[in-house]
Amino acid sequence: MRHNLVVGSENVYNRDSIAIGWLVRAVAYRCTKKPLVWCEETRLTTAKKDDWGPFSSLPGNPLMWVFILSEMLVFSAFFVLYAWQRAADPALFNASQQLLDPLTGGLNTMVLLTSGLCAAFAIQAIADNNKRRCRQWLGLAMVLGVIFCFIKVLEYIDKFSAGLTPETDSFFTYYYLLTGFHFAHVVYGLALLALASWRTSRVNVEIVTAFWHLVDLIWVLLYPLLYLLR
């Protein structure tokens, strides 16, 4: 018997959730092959959180956790692959890693962690029904995200101008692949934060900030791997 998936609670999800709802629908369909119901008012339709079985105990939107888990698995696989590739030729990886600046990476780590704190404060604000304060925190989180991107782009320019490209050697292939993949997540996260600032609702802010914290989480593992460990 084929069941349709439904998400959220009618009290929680409102029409402001439509845009982010498309993201949820896409993830839901990809993971379960079950379509989400779209009700007559084109809003995400209703279900109690208990309908999610084991996912019910997770905070926020269960589908976001499906997404977080899958992203963690993908990045974990990349990190382990990098470490074992390095083990095959540590001298080459160490020589190339020497060309990176650990201080720049560390600064970016602190910028992103502070941005994550702002995102956490945004959740608090929207939970207190303070939309204005929530938007201020989301705005600050975005500013810090843009600073992260600015520093990263400067680093890329510096490396490219020194002739260090993804084809230089295995280390730089991984460097550009991993940081580039993460950078794409940051840019996407910034777009989502902007969307939540525009259509500010509890569910939107919860989903978007969860994604933003995932971006944080990946970077705190990526930074020591590429910049510090040798």
Partner: peptide, 9 residues
């Protein structure tokens, strides 16, 4: 810590 506190796991 990010998982447990920021993501409230």
């Amino acid at each position: 810590q990010i998982l447990m506190i920021y993501l409230n796991l």
